[in-house]
């Protein structure tokens, strides 16, 4: 891989089934809407190198299955994530109501410092809306989340959501609030790293699972 970048961030996409997580990822990576897709089983991956504030950052995105009972499986992928898109569907109150549970999982299993952006997806289906912008932005404020309404169909705010999350992480690195060298930070230095740091292997997000069954 001859890709050069300053940092690598591990991102999660989480939220209830059918909210459009995989479609958001697809839109971000391919710049188009994924028309016919299977639901996700376990986890899928995507990655893209982006430019944020003069730095090149590789986002390694872990897209998870949303069905409640798969949570016991997907939770094991959270470890060491630096950022997350927490997705609900603006036309489904049920998916909004389960946000608190997803958030708890992210903060306890990934890291208490994980940078989370709340995404109210399917913005294009405004006539069927069940959750208002105001209500969700209040929830975001109370829980210290960033917030955007997105549409994986039209692409509106999709790129912005990922970039906003990445930018916030970079700011926190600059201010010293996040230490990339701390184990499980979800951040790795890339080859083009400004510092002459050999990437400590121990800081990798990859932690082998004790048992596959």
């Amino acid at each position: 891989m001859a890709e050069t970048y300053d940092f690598l961030f591990k991102f999660l996409v989480i939220g209830s089934a059918g909210t459009g997580k995989s479609c958001l990822l697809h839109q971000f990576i391919e710049n188009k809407f994924k028309q016919d897709s299977n639901h996700t089983i376990g986890v899928e991956f995507g990655s893209r190198v982006v430019n944020v504030g003069g730095k090149t950052v590789k986002l390694q995105i872990w897209d998870t299955a949303g069905q409640e009972r798969f949570r016991s499986v997907t939770r094991s992928y959270y470890r060491g994530a630096a950022g997350a898109l927490l997705v609900y569907d603006i036309t489904s109150r049920e998916t909004y109501n389960s946000l608190a549970a997803w958030l708890t999982d992210a903060r306890t299993l990934a890291s208490p410092n994980i940078v989370v952006i709340l995404c109210g997806n399917k913005k294009d289906l405004d006539p069927e809306r069940e959750v208002t912008f105001l209500e969700a932005s209040r929830f975001a404020q109370e829980n210290e989340l960033m917030f955007l309404e997105t549409s994986a169909l039209t692409g509106e705010n999709v790129e912005e959501a990922f970039l906003k999350c990445a930018r916030t992480i970079l700011n926190k690195i600059d201010s010293g609030e996040l230490d990339p060298e701390r184990m499980g930070s979800g951040i790795q230095y890339g080859d083009a790293s400004l510092r002459q740091l050999r990437q400590p292997r121990s800081a990798q997000a990859v932690t082998p699972q004790p048992c596959g069954c």
Binding site: A17, G18, D36, S37, N38, H39, Q67
Partner: peptide, 13 residues
């Protein structure tokens, strides 16, 4: 409801 969520997502190919 749970089943319906996946009807369009079963063998789209």
């Amino acid at each position: 409801e749970a089943i319906r969520t996946d009807l369009n997502r079963t063998f789209p190919d």
